[in-house]
């Protein structure tokens, strides 16, 4: 398998990463090297093997539905790039 220049731009777009043509060319070479390594997995026949998503077979714990956290909105918004009146500010989304 080999990625194309268009593939790299498509992946970068999906990943929300701006990438100019020069960076895309450099990334293409590196990513193809990495996928060359990853392709080695195809040598193993894994038919009938169950995927292992997680090292421990864990059941999600349930807890009583009660408020445990105090209101720390100001502390959390203090680290936001732009916040005002308790709201996070972003560019206009709906015209």
């Amino acid at each position: 398998m080999s990625l194309t220049h268009d593939d790299v731009h498509r992946i970068a777009r999906l990943a929300r990463l701006e990438l100019d043509d020069q960076e895309a060319a450099a990334s293409l070479e590196k990513l193809n090297g990495i996928f060359g390594l990853i392709e080695r997995m195809q040598a193993v026949d894994t038919a009938g093997v169950e995927p292992l998503y997680h090292p421990q077979a864990l059941a999600q714990r349930l807890r009583e539905d009660r408020a445990t956290e105090t209101d720390r909105r100001d502390a959390y918004q203090a680290v936001a790039p732009q916040a005002e009146d308790g709201l996070y500010l972003v560019p206009k989304v709906i015209e």
Binding site: I11, A15, L17, S27, L31, F35
Partner: peptide
């Protein structure tokens, strides 16, 4: 950025 792109691709 490379790892994010590899991850994005293998999950696509």
């Amino acid at each position: 950025q490379r790892r994010i792109m590899v991850g994005t691709y293998v999950l696509s």
